[in-house]
Amino acid sequence: MPSRPVFSLVAGEPSGDLLAGLLMDGLQTRWPEVASVGIGGPQMLARGFQSWWPMDKLAVRGYIEVLRHYAEIASIRRQLKARLLREWPQLFIGVDAPDFNLDLEAGLRSRGIRTVHFVCPSIWAWRPERIDKIRAAADHVLCIFPFEPALLASHGVQASYVGHPLAQVIPAQPDAAAARQALGLREDAAVVALLPGSRRSEMRYLAARFFEAAALMRQARPELQFICPVVPSLLPEMTQLLQASPMAGQVTLLQGQSHAALAACDVTLIASGTATLEAALFKRPMVIAYNMNRMSWRLMHRQQLQPWVGLPNILCEDFVVPELLQDAATPKALAEATLEWLQSPQKVQALQARFGRLHEELRRDTPSLCAEAVAQVLAA
């Protein structure tokens, strides 16, 4: 490789940005002069990444929502592919965002650029037909769950288990008191963290019902404190949604700081997604909720292979936390399920012990393992 290798990365949402930032730590340790370009967010930018488009352009979820933005997203992918074929990086790494990255990887790989996909698409949960696309797209897959490499190998895809980066970042014993002090919260009253998602589409479908559920919880427990971490770019819209809700002035909106919120809270009402695994690693009881465009829901529901949607339940292979999805995610049901955790200390203790075991299963030196796998791809 040249003395200053160039790697291209694409992350399409905040969770991918976090994963990519840790990946970059490993790459920069192994190749101190490495340059990284493509599409990324603040974690990547803080490590010297050059982002050619804002990551927000790709942060769209749901079939119908993607269709509405398809022309712009497809145009970005075409332009990015053309630029990479002109500039020819030593490696392309797609970080999650499989709907965007797998097609891009396949196009680059067919022309001779080596490709790595970081985070195995959830073919064990839904859309198993994606395995053919993965095989065509990636020279190697970096897996964050221990059972995935064997599954991929059975389909002829090379893969490595690198651990889940969040298990290394999140402490085994979070300091709730310090987090509460940092956020200006009282010690004498329980804290409920509201996490209605990091995408604009999620926020629009979930935030209002989360605030209505919070209002019902406050009626039952007036002493409760409510916090809501928000992606900074979505803060103005979230502020408007809160002001229009019955909880106006009663919820503290945080600019980012989702980890601080999870460390500080006693329970979280949370959108299905990577954040639910973060909550599990913080050992926090939770109620998982989701609501989306009705047609998108029908399409996704038909492809579901497992009875669980939330990552903690999938990994524990049990409904260890409630899931209230689509029509079941009413404010009343959300409020009752969340309050139930505050009334069940023994149940919380058992859940925390299970999440502690999960944490140990997922903890690895992810940056180093990622860099080693990348080096093997480049040497092949």
Rank of each mutant, 00 (worst) to 15 (best):
M1V: 07
R4S: 14
V6H: 11
V6C: 13
F7P: 00
F7I: 14
S15I: 10
G16E: 06
L18W: 07
G21M: 08
G21Y: 09
L22Y: 11
M24I: 15
M24Y: 07
D25F: 06
D25E: 15
T29F: 10
R30C: 09
R30V: 10
E33R: 15
I39S: 00
G41W: 10
G48Q: 10
M55H: 03
M55C: 05
M55R: 04
A59P: 01
V60G: 03
V60N: 06
R61C: 10
V66E: 08
V66W: 08
L67F: 05
R68T: 01
E72V: 13
I73C: 05
R78S: 09
L80W: 08
K81Y: 03
L84W: 07
R86T: 12
R86M: 10
N101P: 03
G112T: 02
I113P: 01
R114K: 13
H117A: 06
V119F: 07
W124G: 01
A138M: 04
F145C: 04
F145Y: 14
P146Q: 02
A150G: 09
S154V: 05
H155C: 14
G156N: 09
V157A: 08
Q158V: 04
Y161Q: 05
V162A: 10
H164G: 04
P165K: 12
P165N: 13
A167K: 07
Q168T: 15
I170R: 01
I170S: 04
A172I: 10
D175W: 00
A178V: 04
R180F: 08
Q181S: 15
L185C: 08
E187N: 05
A189V: 02
A189T: 09
L194K: 08
R204Y: 00
R204L: 12
Y205L: 00
F210P: 11
F210H: 15
A214S: 12
L216W: 06
R218A: 15
R218Y: 14
Q219F: 00
Q219W: 01
R221H: 09
R221G: 00
C228F: 02
V230K: 05
M238H: 06
A244W: 08
S245Q: 02
A248P: 06
G249D: 10
V251N: 08
T252I: 07
L253S: 11
L253M: 12
Q257H: 12
H259A: 13
H259E: 15
L262W: 02
L262M: 13
D266V: 03
G273L: 04
T274Y: 09
A275S: 15
A279C: 08
A280K: 02
A280Q: 11
R284N: 01
P285V: 06
V287R: 02
A289C: 10
N291M: 03
R294T: 13
Q303K: 13
P307K: 07
P312I: 04
I314A: 03
C316M: 14
D318L: 11
D318S: 14
F319H: 15
F319E: 11
P322V: 12
Q326I: 01
T330M: 08
E336L: 06
A337D: 03
T338G: 04
T338S: 13
E340K: 12
L342K: 00
L342F: 01
Q343L: 11
L351R: 02
A353C: 05
R354Q: 14
L358G: 06
H359Q: 12
H359T: 02
E360Y: 01
L362K: 06
P367N: 11
L369A: 12
E372W: 05
A375M: 02
Q376G: 04
V377Y: 05
